[in-house]
Each structure stands twice: as structure tokens, then as C-alpha cells.
Computed example of a mutant assay.
Amino acid sequence: MAVYMRQHHPDLDIDYFFTDTGKELPEVYEFLGRLEGFLGKSILRLNPDRDFDFWLKQYNNFLPSPQTRWCTRQLKLRPFEQWLRPLLEEGNTIYSYVAIRSDEEYREGYSSKHDRLKIVLPFKEDGIDKPGVLDILEASGLGLPRYYDWRSRSGCTFCFYQQKIEWVRLKEEHPEAFEEAKSYEKDAVANGSPFTWSQGESLDELTQPERVKQIKEDYEKRLARAKAKRQQNPLRDEGDELDIDELYGQAKGCLACHK
């Protein structure tokens, strides 16, 4: 969205922001640096003082989950609203440009609680779908953040919407981050949390050698079936890899985190 607005609305003096959980993948910060170079201006980092660790303590070490998404509420929406509140109180009208694509009917986006906070969905209005977004990023020279090489969506280290293959890949790509996720999970269970990061099993169970083998085999089978069903498209490079969303179905993820 930032790239699109810079290219199509250079007349607008837009403030770009990023709500930092304090637990982002290294690839996220690398991409933000390159994006700032493209935009020619800094991206404001919100949430400098209250990160994931702070809020985890407030919630008695209970992990966030699809049932209790306190990370979205406290680390994404709350800092955004606090940032805007003084501007709205001064009587300003604010336009927030949100990157929900035209093919994401299941995503509703942020619901404004103020009549002077206007939510705008340029991709939906202009009919830009997922291939269109990829074209925008490739044409800009930025491409996708590097974590998309092994993950489907969120840049937060231990997003609970990850598929099991993504947890396995997190262990392979960033073993220290995976071990941190395991320690959070153990503390949560010890404090009575009913949730683990991955539904139905702990990270210890998920990364047992036989279980890893099973997860990888399931992924490869899904990939083979999806490729066999894929319709031929003369405009599409047949070497393009299917992403995890296409294999497992698009999860109805956090409106602020999932891209």
C-alpha cells in the first residue's frame, strides 16, 4: 500500500507507520529499511515502550490465541488509536489507507470509532488482487519481504496463525526465536493457560523428529496435489511456487497483522 500510494498519489503528504510488537522477524526490519529508501521518508515506529513481553505479564503469561487475540488489540490497535487521538481531538480529519485487496472478501479491516477517522481501501476500490500486489512490489524493485520465502503472512515471530510447516521452518530459519517461543509456551502452561502456540500440540511435540517428518510429508503431498490441479495460465511463470495460503486455505487472520 505504501508503494502504491507513493506511485499514484505523490501529491499526498502521507505519514507511514509500523506497529512494532518487539518480536518481529529480522527480515521485517530489513524490509522496512529498504521501503524507507524507496519512499524517501522515515516510517514511524509505534509501541516503543510496551512490547509483547510487557503485555504477556499483564495477561498472566497466557498466550494470545485465535480465541483471545490480545496481541492484536494491545500491540496493533491500541498504539494506533493512541497515536491518532490527539490529532482527532484537535479537530483534524484523518484518512487511513488500509491494504485490503479486492480478493480478500473475508477481511473487513479496522472499524473506525470516530467520525473524523476515515478508512480508505484503495486496493478494493481499484480492483487490485494478490497478483496485482505482487506486480506492484516487483516493479518497484522491492519484492516481498524475505520471510515470504518460507512463511505465508505475518512477520511476527510466533504468530499463532502459522501453519505447522511454518513452525518447523521457524526452527530451521531462526532457531533462537523458536526456542524463545518454546519458553513462552512452557511458562504459559505452567500458569494454567489452556492454549499452546500451535493448535493441538506443544512446540516440543511438534518438533519431535518423526512429527517433523510427518509435517513435511503432508506439506509435500498438499503441494503436489495443488500443482496437479493448478490451471494453466500463459501469463504465469510455471516455476512460481505456490504459497502456503494456497495450500492450506486462507486463514481469517488478524486484520492488522496479516498482509
Results as ranks from 00 to 15, higher is better:
residue 1 M to E: 02
residue 5 M to L: 14
residue 6 R to Y: 02
residue 9 H to Q: 11
residue 11 D to S: 15
residue 15 D to I: 03
residue 17 F to H: 12
residue 17 F to R: 05
residue 20 D to A: 10
residue 27 E to D: 13
residue 28 V to N: 00
residue 32 L to T: 08
residue 33 G to N: 15
residue 34 R to G: 08
residue 36 E to C: 04
residue 47 N to R: 03
residue 48 P to N: 08
residue 49 D to M: 05
residue 53 D to H: 12
residue 53 D to N: 10
residue 56 L to N: 12
residue 57 K to L: 11
residue 62 F to W: 15
residue 64 P to T: 06
residue 65 S to W: 02
residue 68 T to K: 13
residue 69 R to E: 11
residue 71 C to D: 09
residue 73 R to N: 11
residue 74 Q to M: 13
residue 77 L to Y: 01
residue 79 P to Y: 03
residue 82 Q to A: 01
residue 82 Q to K: 10
residue 89 E to K: 00
residue 91 G to K: 02
residue 92 N to M: 04
residue 93 T to R: 06
residue 98 V to S: 04
residue 99 A to R: 01
residue 101 R to W: 02
residue 102 S to L: 07
residue 103 D to E: 08
residue 107 R to Q: 04
residue 107 R to L: 09
residue 111 S to E: 11
residue 115 D to T: 11
residue 117 L to H: 06
residue 121 L to E: 05
residue 125 E to T: 15
residue 125 E to F: 02
residue 129 D to R: 05
residue 138 E to L: 08
residue 141 G to L: 00
residue 142 L to D: 02
residue 144 L to N: 11
residue 148 Y to M: 06
residue 148 Y to L: 04
residue 152 S to Y: 06
residue 152 S to P: 07
residue 152 S to D: 04
residue 156 C to G: 02
residue 157 T to V: 06
residue 167 W to M: 08
residue 172 E to M: 14
residue 176 E to Y: 13
residue 186 K to P: 03
residue 190 A to W: 14
residue 192 G to I: 07
residue 192 G to Y: 13
residue 201 E to Y: 08
residue 204 D to H: 03
residue 206 L to S: 10
residue 206 L to D: 10
residue 207 T to S: 14
residue 215 I to Q: 07
residue 216 K to H: 12
residue 216 K to M: 13
residue 219 Y to E: 15
residue 222 R to Y: 12
residue 242 L to D: 13
residue 245 D to I: 02
residue 249 G to Y: 06
residue 250 Q to T: 11
